[in-house]
Simulated scan of single mutants.
Amino acid sequence: MVRGKIQMKRIENESSRQVTFSKRRNGLLKKAYELSVLCDAEVALIIFSQKGRLFQFSSSNMENTMEKYLEHAKNKETTTDNTEVQQHVQHLKHETAFMAKKIEQLESSKRKILGQGLGTYSVEELQDIENQLEKSLKNIQARKAELYKEDVEKLKAKEKFLFEENTRLREKCGLKPRQTPEKQNEITSCSQSSVSVEVVTDLFIGLPPIQNGY
């Protein structure tokens, strides 16, 4: 008769659970004894039932085996900790070497920019440094122009806000609103053109007047 496959989960029926515990406990103790005899191994087995009852087997002395286990576990933990510390120290050494190399590269770049220690450089290397400086200068000028443009836009926005606020206050006081900044600029430009035209029309055309004595 083929035995049914038992699922690996807690047996809900208490009586069946107790029977299974007794059978498998005895089988496990028997296997531990056989392992110690056949393989000349030091075996210690500890089992606590659901109610806390102790069952144990030891091929020699349980206390000596437990002390040996605790000592082994302690040494293993210490070895593991030492390995982790060594790995961390090694990682820090690599990081330190990398940072030192990076700092040296930055110092070298700084000396190049300041024009220091160039006596050993070839013409090609000096040309590369010059090209890098020109490229950096263009980037700086472009960024500077961008910042100027942003400032101008902010000032225009502030001018518009102040004009609108001024207009609102003048209307509130019953005064005639002023021209917009754009309109004022247009009027100023036209006035300057008119002055230029008047200056031209006032010029005397013809022979100069004859002064006395000539």
Score class of each variant (00 low, 15 high):
7 Q>N: 09
7 Q>M: 11
8 M>D: 08
10 R>I: 03
10 R>A: 04
11 I>F: 04
13 N>Y: 08
14 E>S: 12
15 S>T: 06
18 Q>L: 13
18 Q>F: 04
19 V>I: 13
20 T>Q: 12
22 S>T: 14
23 K>F: 01
25 R>T: 01
28 L>Y: 07
28 L>V: 04
30 K>L: 03
30 K>Y: 03
30 K>Q: 12
31 K>G: 01
31 K>M: 07
32 A>R: 06
32 A>K: 07
35 L>F: 05
35 L>Q: 09
35 L>T: 08
37 V>Y: 03
39 C>D: 12
39 C>K: 15
40 D>W: 03
40 D>Q: 13
41 A>C: 11
41 A>L: 15
42 E>G: 02
42 E>T: 06
43 V>T: 03
43 V>M: 02
44 A>F: 09
45 L>Y: 06
45 L>A: 03
47 I>V: 10
48 F>W: 09
50 Q>S: 06
51 K>A: 06
54 L>H: 13
55 F>P: 01
56 Q>C: 03
58 S>I: 02
59 S>N: 04
62 M>F: 09
62 M>P: 00
63 E>S: 11
63 E>L: 12
64 N>I: 07
66 M>A: 12
66 M>Q: 10
68 K>G: 01
68 K>C: 02
68 K>A: 04
73 A>Q: 15
74 K>V: 00
75 N>S: 11
76 K>C: 09
76 K>Y: 10
77 E>V: 03
78 T>S: 10
80 T>Y: 08
82 N>M: 11
85 V>A: 10
87 Q>E: 15
91 H>I: 06
91 H>A: 15
92 L>P: 00
92 L>H: 12
93 K>Q: 11
93 K>D: 14
95 E>A: 08
95 E>D: 09
97 A>F: 09
97 A>S: 11
98 F>W: 07
99 M>Y: 05
100 A>M: 10
101 K>Q: 09
102 K>C: 02
103 I>V: 12
104 E>W: 01
105 Q>E: 05
106 L>K: 15
107 E>I: 02
107 E>R: 13
108 S>W: 08
109 S>I: 00
111 R>A: 05
111 R>L: 10
112 K>E: 06
112 K>P: 00
115 G>M: 05
118 L>K: 08
119 G>Q: 14
119 G>D: 15
120 T>E: 13
120 T>D: 11
123 V>E: 08
123 V>N: 06
123 V>A: 04
124 E>L: 12
124 E>Q: 14
125 E>I: 00
127 Q>Y: 02
127 Q>V: 01
129 I>M: 02
130 E>G: 02
130 E>A: 05
